[in-house]
């Protein structure tokens, strides 16, 4: 039996890698992928804790997270395509229209 601490540590590591990717990459698609990494890290934490607690709730929440991630990917990618069509770029630092 693997210690829960190690599972949570793995989850934390993947999450932190996702955060780092979101902060340092310019390509919004890759930033999006980093978000998926974070989501999965949290999913892993849910499943691990749920498994140790013996409840199904963690898995159900993961199920919902997956659904929401699918919806988010559909809409998010559509937005990225729209942005690319009008601005010809997917670099986050070129998309600074929302400023003073």
């Amino acid at each position: 039996m693997v210690s829960l601490s190690w599972l949570m540590a793995l989850s934390a590591a993947i999450f932190v890698i996702g955060v780092g990717g979101f902060l340092t990459r310019r390509n919004i698609l890759v930033m999006f992928m980093s978000i998926e990494l974070m989501l999965n890290a949290v999913n892993l934490a849910f499943v691990s804790l749920g498994s140790r607690l013996g409840t199904m709730d963690g898995q159900v929440i993961v199920f919902f997270v997956m659904t929401v991630a699918a919806a988010e990917a559909a809409v998010g990618l559509a937005i990225i395509i729209s942005i690319f069509r009008s601005r010809e770029t997917v670099h986050a630092d070129d998309l600074t229209l929302l400023k003073w």
Partner: peptide
């Protein structure tokens, strides 16, 4: 990892859907 922790359905769904 999911399947290894008995979260079988969710694990396979992760592979199929995600």
């Amino acid at each position: 990892l999911f399947i290894g922790q008995d979260a079988i359905v969710v694990g396979f769904l992760q592979a199929i859907v995600y």
